[in-house]
Measured scan of single mutants.
Amino acid sequence: MATGGRRGAAAAPLLVAVAALLLGAAGHLYPGEVCPGMDIRNNLTRLHELENCSVIEGHLQILLMFKTRPEDFRDLSFPKLIMITDYLLLFRVYGLESLKDLFPNLTVIRGSRLFFNYALVIFEMVHLKELGLYNLMNITRGSVRIEKNNELCYLATIDWSRILDSVEDNYIVLNKDDNEECGDICPGTAKGKTNCPATVINGQFVERCWTHSHCQKVCPTICKSHGCTAEGLCCHSECLGNCSQPDDPTKCVACRNFYLDGRCVETCPPPYYHFQDWRCVNFSFCQDLHHKCKNSRRQGCHQYVIHNNKCIPECPSGYTMNSSNLLCTPCLGPCPKVCHLLEGEKTIDSVTSAQELRGCTVINGSLIINIRGGNNLAAELEANLGLIEEISGYLKIRRSYALVSLSFFRKLRLIRGETLEIGNYSFYALDNQNLRQLWDWSKHNLTITQGKLFFHYNPKLCLSEIHKMEEVSGTKGRQERNDIALKTNGDQASCENELLKFSYIRTSFDKI
C-alpha cells in the first residue's frame, strides 16, 4: 500500500482533458527560462521544448504516446526543470519506465491550478516501474492521483506527508504495488545497510526511497516546507523545498512566496507586481503582455491589467481597466465587458449561442446573426445582446428569417469595421425574408467608422429604411451602385405612401 494514499474509496472516473512563447529569463536562482504550460502528445517531438525550461508557468501534460519505446527515452533528460506552477499529468506514455532521468531536479509542483483537485496525476502508464522524482520536495496545493499503472512499484516507500501538507485526498490505487509483488529495495538494503531515512506512518517504520538508488530526502521537522541542505541544516524561511546553503534567500532552489532578481522575498516591493503567484514583474512586463494579447485571437491570451499590486489576466467583477495605466478602477454604474472572439468572429444561430455573449459591452471581433427560429426570440436576444455598444469588426445579418427588427441591439452605437466582410463591408444584410426595420432612427444613433453597407434580398425592408441608415451611420456616399439592390429590397412591402385627393359631386333626387 502506498504510504499516505487512500484505498478502496469510491472515486469519480478520471477524465483526461485534452506555445513556446518565453516569458522571460528567471535569473540567477533558476538555471534556465520560464516556459508556458505545455500539452505534449502523440510523439516526442515537442518534448524537446523543455530543454531550457527551469519553470513551467502553467501545467505540463505528457500523454497518448503509443509508439514510443524505452530506448526512445534513454537520452532524454531535462535537468534544468525545477518547478511547475500548476500540475504534472502523465497518461498512456508507452515505453517510459521512470522519471528519474527525465526530470531529475523537479523540486516543486505548486498546484496553482489543479487537474480535478490533483497536482500530480500518473494514470495508465503501462510501462512505468517507478516514479523516480527523487528531488520532489513540495506539492504546495492539491493532491496526488496514481492509478492503474500495472508495473509501478516504489510507492509504499514514499512518505507523501513530507511532500504535501495533507495526504487525506491522495488516491493511489490499482498499481502493481497493490499486489505486494514489488519487493522494493532501498539503497544499501541488499548489503544489509540502512542508507535512507525511515519514518513512521500508520504504525509502520519504513525506509523512504524513490528507487533502488535514490533515497527520499527527509528534512528535520523544524525546517517545515522550506527544505534543508545535504547536511540537514534548514533553508531560509522564504525558500521552498530545498537550498544549497542554509538561511540564505539567494540560495533557495525555489521560493515559498515570490522570486525577485535572484532572491526569494515575502512580497513584491514597489515598483514590482505579483505575477502568477510566484514571481515579481515590473510595469513594462505587464504592459507588454497586455499589448501582445490586445489584437491576438490565441486562446488563453489575456490583456493583463494591474489590481491590488498584482498583474492579473482581467479586472475583477465591479472594476474596469483604465487604459492609460492598466489599473483596475471601480465602475460607475454597470461595468464594461470586452469579449474577445477566439477566431475573430462568432455566429449567433440560437439563443444558446447568444447567451455566451451575455453582459458583453464591447465585441472584439465580428458578429454573424443567422437565426431561423426560436421561442420568445426578441426578448431572449435583447437579454443577451442588448448591452453590446461596440463591435470592432463587422455585423452580418444573414438568412435570419425569424427577425423582424434589429432593435434587440438596443445599445449598439459603434461598428468600427477594423475587419470587413469580403474585404469591403462593415454591415452586411443578406436574404432576411421578414426583416422590416433596422432601428427606430428617431431614437437610435449608430456610427460606422469604416467599410460599406450591403443589402440584398431583404424583400420587406424598404429602401427608405436603408437610406436612413446611410445618413445616420455616416456611410452615405461610400456605397457603390450594386451594394444596395434596388429590386430585391422592399419588393414585397408597401414602401411608397402617396396622399390621394378626392373630389365629389353631391346629387339628390331633384338636383344634379
Rank of each mutant, 00 (worst) to 15 (best):
T329A: 15
H291Y: 15
S296I: 09
S317G: 12
T45Q: 03
K80G: 13
S324E: 14
H48I: 04
Q287G: 15
Q61Y: 03
W160I: 01
R297N: 12
L89G: 00
S237E: 11
V265I: 09
I163H: 01
V206T: 12
C53E: 00
T157A: 13
N325E: 14
D178G: 12
H226V: 07
S317Q: 07
L64D: 08
V34T: 07
E168V: 14
T157L: 08
G300A: 08
V167M: 07
S77N: 10
Y118A: 09
L332M: 12
N43K: 10
R46M: 06
L106N: 04
H302E: 08
G262C: 03
P336K: 02
E168G: 02
H307Q: 05
R256S: 09
K310R: 07
G132R: 01
F91R: 02
S143G: 13
W278V: 05
E130Q: 11
L76Q: 02
L88H: 00
S323V: 06
G192F: 08
Q299R: 09
H274F: 15
N52S: 07
I56R: 15
F66T: 03
P249R: 02
N309I: 03
Q287F: 14
K129H: 13
C286Q: 01
F116N: 10
D169T: 12
T189Y: 03
G333Y: 14
E124S: 06
E57N: 05
V305G: 08
T140Y: 07
P70A: 10
D178L: 12
L152Y: 00
C209I: 01
P271M: 01
L89R: 01
D184Y: 09
H59G: 11
I82P: 00
P313N: 02
N257S: 12
G262Y: 02
D101S: 05
S161Y: 13
I109Y: 00
I139W: 00
L240H: 14
R145F: 09
P70I: 06
V108I: 02
P187I: 13
Q216H: 10
E180L: 08
K294W: 10
L50R: 02
D261K: 07
C235R: 00
C280A: 00
P270K: 04
D178E: 10
N175K: 11
S225Y: 06
K129C: 09
H214L: 09
E33G: 08
L99M: 08
L131F: 04
V218L: 10
Q299L: 09
Q299F: 04
L164P: 01
G300K: 09
M65W: 01
P79Q: 10
R141S: 08
S112Y: 08
P249L: 03
I84G: 00
R297M: 09
D177G: 12
A190P: 10
R113F: 05
I84F: 00
E57D: 03
T189V: 10
F103G: 00
Q276A: 13
S54E: 06
E180W: 06
N105V: 04
C235V: 00
C209P: 04
I185Y: 04
L88N: 00
Y319S: 15
R141N: 08
S213Y: 02
G227D: 10
L174C: 14
M125T: 14
F103R: 02
L90S: 02
C215Q: 12
G58S: 00
M83E: 08
F115T: 05
E51K: 00
S161K: 08
H226K: 11
A198Y: 08
K217Q: 13
K292W: 07
I62Q: 00
